[in-house]
Design a protein around this nucleic acid. Sequence first.
DNA 1: CCCTGTTAGAGTCGTTTTGACTCTAAGTGA
DNA 2: TCACTTAGAGTCAAAACGACTCTAACAGGG
Lengths: 233, 233
Amino acid sequence: MTLINDGQDHVTSPAATRVDLAVSAVVFALRPHPVTGEPTIWLPLVKRIREPFLGQWALPGGPLAPDDDLATSAAKSLNQTTGLKPRYLEQLYAFGNVNRSPDRVVSIVYWALVRADEDSRADTAENVEWFVADEIPELAFDHNDIVSYALTRLRNKITWSPIAHGFLNDTFTLAELRSVHEAVLGRQLDPANFRRQILADGMLEATGSFVTGTSHRPPALYRFMARNKRNEP
Amino acid sequence: MTLINDGQDHVTSPAATRVDLAVSAVVFALRPHPVTGEPTIWLPLVKRIREPFLGQWALPGGPLAPDDDLATSAAKSLNQTTGLKPRYLEQLYAFGNVNRSPDRVVSIVYWALVRADEDSRADTAENVEWFVADEIPELAFDHNDIVSYALTRLRNKITWSPIAHGFLNDTFTLAELRSVHEAVLGRQLDPANFRRQILADGMLEATGSFVTGTSHRPPALYRFMARNKRNEP
DNA sequence: CCCTGTTAGAGTCGTTTTGACTCTAAGTGA
DNA sequence: TCACTTAGAGTCAAAACGACTCTAACAGGG
């Protein structure tokens, strides 16, 4: 017989050899690009006020409070840095390589979407700054890799999952929804085909009202359906 | 200005309030079903030798060693319990709800595929037992949920990712590969269409050799291509 | 040696999905 | 009334997909 670990979740190890646990968040919002004016992905970063990497930009986050669930902890960090509440929040990955930090830290990273219209009151906190996602500086730790991975996940997920409403108000036109997809994917989408496919998914519901005063045909307003109204098996 | 956390990965908090960190693994292998004989998903569980949940079955795992990366730690647990090396290993999720354990434990869970032919020398360790994935008992902690989630991930991923070779030898016939897909998805697949689609993915390469002595037309042997030989943009 | 049973592997066909494109609807402003 | 703009429906050909057929190539039994 081999001597084995007993596979326990439940362990007590000497505090000296313990590993620190942190929760961070990659927060995405859509804002106009400063040069082109096109809708673009932005994210908030926090300037470090301690070693290591003092003075460098990093993802918002902090230690896991013993009374908070992981997602709660991520939402709190997010709220404390940006003043926003996430419209969508999902665990991204647990990063824990030995060499990712001078001392051993495992970071459980979440990614979140916040609404553009809440976005205005976002710059209240000091040493927090929003950056265009494709133009971020060199970050502390492995946070550049984390941001890249989060962007990849966002761009993948938006192609098959109805998460785009995380950037929008409760009601929106198909043009607004398409604009979100275009901003995330970085390319133009055919309006007619986009309409056909997004409606075929059966997640959208016409509100019955229309936007007026648009100098062209008034677009219909849609909302995302509650889960139990959707076309599911 | 709002007072904010400084978003640090790097924290020191009193050891008293610290959260324990464990790494566990959901290990999948294909073996014949004890009743039907059909290829079926199995996984190894470990009987707990401590409170809480003493005597109940749990996923293999243990505390994170300070010198191990997360994936390394998962692979070690896997190897210590089963004697096997993973052919595929991927992080599943970090489970850290406050109420998932009497004391606070965050578990970073990996899922792995192991080969059937290594599978024979697998029952060497005591208090380890293999179960049919759809017929597992009530497990410790939230491990039933974790197993369900891992199965969902496996069944989803096999439809778009070439992970099925994690169950197979280096060379295999298309019938063997199809049999893996059928076992994972739990339904029959059309041999002709499966062939067409799997070959169109461009991840398979004919070895040039064939299986002989089969009492029918000899099937060609394939292998998975190295990443740089694949049809990628 | 031929016949049968079995799986390998190529090919067919109709349906569905997708991308590119056209056409009409419905508003504003000149 | 006309020009302009976007909404939204519709068309069409290419590609993908599922169900199916047909021939190839072995072993084993008469």
